[in-house]
Design a protein around this nucleic acid. Structure first.
Lengths: 294, 294
DNA sequence: GAGTTTATCTGACTAATGTCAGATAATGGA
DNA sequence: TCCATTATCTGACATTAGTCAGATAAACTC
């Protein structure tokens, strides 16, 4: 690794941490200890959240969080309600006062950011914003992780639902999952099939499936990237993973179908070496069929 | 201010703080509380530092720092010595053990940076480094502040010394301040003259002087930028300040001289509208003379 | 339905951080 | 020389942060 690169990263860290310090101060500017402010802000960001998820996000001890919550409750900022689905768990959400307080923190953060931008010359400001967007994109790209996952896990289901909803929005004729899918998780479960989920910092941002069509032939299905993660190469990473899985499963041919509306998908398939072939299935939404030797 | 820009800055902060967290952990990785580690690291970075400066840099209470120092002293990491110049003050510096410990922290920070870089693809790494360099440059540019200061202050003297040392290095014939300067701070003191210092985060990074030559005519002298701050437009900012001062002092003409070796300076003067004129003084090192109506 | 696991809460701590009002000794002027 | 100022240290606290071992009740498993 280049020594100069490392030094540059460290110089950047130092320069930027100085500014971030200002941002941290906005957490303290309302006379509440940092821990409480963090919790309050996080609940507000999530718009209500289970205690366990909260604990995980902020890395807090359960006893500690319990006390923080009681303190915030005492201040009238949050209320804890039983989770309908699981009476052991509790959900935290902001009261009206809490919401107002959250918004005050939010404004402070905006002010800090605006202050930072305001200190720059007009000609420099767009340069800073662009460089920040670039770094954010690179860091998020590096954080993409694709892994096998049961097709009926909560995250898998949520990805598929978003995928179907998007198809319904984009297909001129709409999209009815039942018409084509009669989705059976068992079909995506080894050894008949596989399902992968892509995550950024444990947040699911995409999915894809591979299924056995016939001997030596697999089919790629349901490759989807969340709008929040487009431009990070998530779909490519998912395809990499599915193709590796296909090799391992002994397939020599991969097929897939797609609708004409999905231009980006077709471009990606072409780029990865998929060639258009004749219709091989009776999917009513499919308009193009592709194949690749692997 | 553009709302999207503000949101981009905040998204970047969030994304980056996640990574910085990793960096913070390297402070904790050696079983010492964060406060102590910070102090140890800062002393090491500065290579020895007065307690007061240390307190200011880290924003610590004097009592608190006193105790942190005693703890680090007890661990054999630092030693406190009386300041020769002021017997009330004390200077902290690392012992040999402390130096080794500092280097261990330094390595941990390097590792964290290397880790960050290592998580990127080879094609992305230079993009990240370049974007970071860009942001660092923009933030430092925005942090440049130029202000009048007595020409005999410690920072002013230190700038001038570095300026002379650089001239000595760059002039083919060397440079002897005494031959030309017989530097008298009084000459740079209102109303006969003015001296400005440029700072980045209170660190002096440049200087410049303005002096009365004759009625209505001022002379710009000793404009210098520290090598650590080149490319930030420091010299331009100094010139801005000096010209504003000249206007206030009622000058209508500004003159200056320079040596042929200092190409960057000549380019800047030309860009600011200075035109070459005949020799107007007997400075033995001067090879070009410039003038501008203001 | 008994035993195990899970989510949260409580009590009892410890360590770290932060604050403030003097105390002490050196410095800098008037 | 006297007095105000400055740099640091000490004592006495208060608050925050963090940990850990049960306790409790609901949920899950067999």
């Amino acid at each position: 690794m280049d020594r100069n690169d490392i030094q540059q990263v460290r110089r950047f860290n130092r320069a930027f941490t100085k500014r971030i310090g200002v941002l941290d101060e906005s957490y303290l500017a309302r006379g509440r200890p940092f821990g409480e402010a963090r919790v309050l802000f996080e609940i507000g960001l999530a718009g209500g959240i289970g205690l366990q998820a909260l604990r995980e996000r902020l890395g807090l001890d359960s006893g500690y969080l319990s006390r923080l919550m009681r303190s915030l409750e005492g201040q009238g900022m949050v209320e804890l309600v039983r989770d309908e689905a699981d009476a052991r768990a509790r959900l935290a959400r902001l009261t009206e006062t809490g919401q107002a307080e959250f918004e005050a923190y939010d404004r402070l953060s905006d002010d800090a950011a605006e202050n930072l931008l305001g200190s720059l010359k007009d000609t420099h400001r767009p340069l800073l914003v662009a460089a920040m967007a670039e770094i954010e994109r690179l860091l998020r790209t590096a954080a993409v992780a694709v892994a096998l996952e049961p097709a009926d896990s909560a995250d898998a289901r949520s990805c598929l639902e978003q995928y179907y909803a998007e198809l319904a929005r984009r297909f001129p004729s709409g999209f009815d999952p039942l018409a084509v899918n009669n989705f059976d998780p068992a079909e995506m479960t080894p050894p008949k099939g596989w399902f992968v989920v892509a995550r950024v910092d444990s947040e699911p941002v995409g999915c894809g499936a591979l299924k056995r069509l016939e001997d030596g032939v697999g089919e790629v299905k349901r490759v989807w990237t969340s709008p929040s993660a487009r431009g990070l190469g998530v779909a490519s990473r998912i395809m990499d993973r599915l193709e590796a899985q296909a090799v391992e499963a002994g397939f020599t041919i991969l097929r897939l179908d797609t609708n004409g509306t999905l231009k980006e998908a077709q471009a990606m398939y072409a780029k990865r070496g998929y060639r258009e072939i004749e219709r091989y299935n009776d999917n009513p939404y499919a308009e193009h069929w592709f194949e690749k030797r692997i």
